[in-house]
Amino acid sequence: MRIERDLMRGAGPPAVLKLLEKRPMYGYELVETLAERSDGVLAMGQSTLYPLLYNLEGKGFVEAFWRETPSGRQRKYYRLTRKGKARLAESTQQWQALSQALRVMGIVDARGATS
């Protein structure tokens, strides 16, 4: 299912922050993981991911660093900052509240599926 752009704009940042919560990840890995974990719902092209990452970096929620791969190639990783963690917690609360409201409104059911 294809998510509308405006919705993706709101959901993308917390999704990326959530992925980075456990460990640093690189761009391609993030794209693939997002698509995999969301069954393709949050799949985004690189043209969307990298601007999103740069925005998060500019706001200080993530920080980038280069690290050598086993093949000797340099790869850019992103990891969550303390500010990013706080932002993730805040976003999580907001999305839960939104989800609850949508449930009350009957837009989504108890399992989170749309009715």
Partner: peptide, 20 residues
Amino acid sequence: RFGDVATAAKLIRRAKKRAR
């Protein structure tokens, strides 16, 4: 899968400038 080059360039430019 990369998407539209012009859009990517525009968004990256905007984000990079904002991140300066």
